[in-house]
């Protein structure tokens, strides 16, 4: 399983390194959303800093859907999917591989967005541990859910519109828990981040487990 996972992750990252779609399309989109949020809320730094936790996670969520679209597009045309199906790979390994590759991209994306929020929205983070923990856990949850639903959404022509409708309600807990954990990490008095990290852990574990168990029947189409 892990052998196939590493192979698939390697393939996805190599293709990404060549095509640079995530770098030149997804990342600029993520940064752009931060600018648009600022335009929508006005230039008052206080308001932006106050809204930063939610805005950060919204930007992450939207970008994650875009990144997932790209990750599914890497799978290529029907013929390419067919030839992969002829290889006899372990479906759980394929799932984990795709999640790993997407995870690498998401973590990079979160790092850039976090930098953007701190710099542009004047956010002062007091407890980095909670924030970074939340980012990593949320990334696992988002990647697993996105890969699962990306595969569920099927053929490319439907996927572009179907994936957001399917995946965004599902990842709503990640948005809630992520935002609350972010809030907790900027103002230590505003409650404990532990409970929210707990939700992120549960989400990540549940969707990883379901992916490993159900990716096989899902791809068998």
């Amino acid at each position: 399983m892990w052998r196939d996972a590493v192979l698939i992750a390697g393939r996805d990252l190599r293709i990404e390194a060549r095509s640079r779609v995530a770098l030149w399309q997804v990342l600029p989109f993520a940064v752009l959303t931060l600018l648009l949020f600022a335009f929508a809320l006005g230039p008052r730094p206080g308001l932006l800093a106050q809204s930063a936790p939610g805005l950060f996670w919204l930007a992450v969520l939207f970008s994650s859907v875009l990144a997932a679209q790209r990750s599914m597009a890497i799978e290529g045309s029907g013929a390419t999917r067919d030839s992969v199906r002829l290889l006899g790979l372990d479906p759980a390994g394929v799932f984990l591989g795709k999640v790993l590759a997407l995870l690498a991209e998401m973590v990079a994306l979160e790092a850039v967005l976090l930098g953007g929020v701190v710099l542009l929205f004047h956010v002062t983070v007091t407890s980095w541990g909670v924030l970074i923990g939340a980012c990593l856990l949320a990334a696992v949850g988002l990647c697993t859910a996105n890969v699962l639903y990306g595969s569920l959404a099927g053929e490319a022509r439907m996927r572009a519109t179907l994936l957001p409708v399917l995946v965004l309600p599902v990842v709503a807990p990640v948005l809630i828990a992520g935002s609350k954990a972010f809030s907790a990490s900027v103002a230590p008095g505003s409650g404990s981040g532990a409970r929210w990290l707990g939700i992120l852990v549960v989400f990540a574990v549940v969707y990883s487990a379901m992916g490993v168990a159900l990716y096989g029947p899902l791809e068998e189409s």
Partner: peptide
């Protein structure tokens, strides 16, 4: 599979 994913999401949504 989608129905199961959604059903599993329900308690997580609920608590959060």
């Amino acid at each position: 599979i989608a129905a199961i994913f959604a059903a599993v999401d329900v308690p997580i949504v609920h608590f959060s």
